[in-house]
Design a binder for these strands. Structure first.
Lengths: 129, 129
DNA sequence: CCTTGAGCTTCCAGTTACTAGAACCTTTAT
DNA sequence: ATAAAGGTTCTAGTAACTGGAAGCTCAAGG
């Protein structure tokens, strides 16, 4: 199956599918004319990647997940460890964002937002205590 | 003052300070020998940038904030509008991340994490319903 | 005065995960 | 025969730096 079909079925843009070939994530067979030829297995892997990326796993994470996915001898503990590490990262990022949100909300609330130059947001940014 | 001192005082790495010069964010004077020469005003701006970047404003946002910062005729409403837009973006990102966290937490919880290959995380990623 | 080491300069490459576009080839349909 | 559609590769651009190399300048010690 050609790249466009593989893309459609996996839900990824064709450009991305080619990119995943380039970086060796999902490497399809090639036909005599040089066209990529994807089988169902490859499409499955592409769909797997789409989902994993949506869940915020990095390409590097995906590489590991994919090899675990392919490995019938794998231990589920390996997968779980990867997911847990990722979860911790998400928690860190969430905390940062929440903190940021509070600060910003506070500043926005404090700013009168009229046509005068007086602005607590800029005052804060400038390091004013 | 040389770039290293400006960097130290503003809390930014010297590389970043030079970068901000390159992209025209904070352009210092040059001395006869070609060395960058920062005054207190420039250091203030660098510190301003550091804080704004920490709050997640993009470089482009920063460019606008900086010009508002410099403009004594500004209307605080302009600043507020910028900050509000940014706040909305943060809220969107927060929601995404929280959703993601739930999904992932659920999966991690469901996975036994032993030495057997059976793994609900991989099952989910593969599109298994 | 000379040398050494620190600090400055610029420029190039790498990072992440694609995406846009150009130039060119192959297949399919008219 | 030709034109459109779809395939190929390659380069460059995105955001915001960061690391490293080659080379110039400056201050201090012998």
């Amino acid at each position: 199956m050609n790249v466009r079909d593989a893309a459609t079925r996996s839900g990824l843009p064709p450009k991305t599918v080619r990119y995943y070939d380039d970086i060796g994530l999902v490497v399809p067979d090639r036909r005599g004319n040089g066209y990529r030829d994807y089988d169902n297995r490859a499409v499955q892997k592409l769909a797997f990647l789409k989902r994993a990326r949506q869940l915020g796993f990095s390409i590097d994470d995906c590489r590991q997940l994919l090899s675990l996915y392919e490995d019938n001898e794998r231990a589920s503990a390996d997968v779980k460890a990867l997911a847990e590490t990722h979860l911790e990262e998400i928690d860190r990022r969430l905390e940062e964002l929440q903190h940021l949100r509070e600060t910003l909300k506070h500043l926005v609330h404090a700013c009168r937002g009229d046509d005068r130059p007086d602005c607590p947001i800029l005052a804060d940014l400038s390091g004013d205590k």
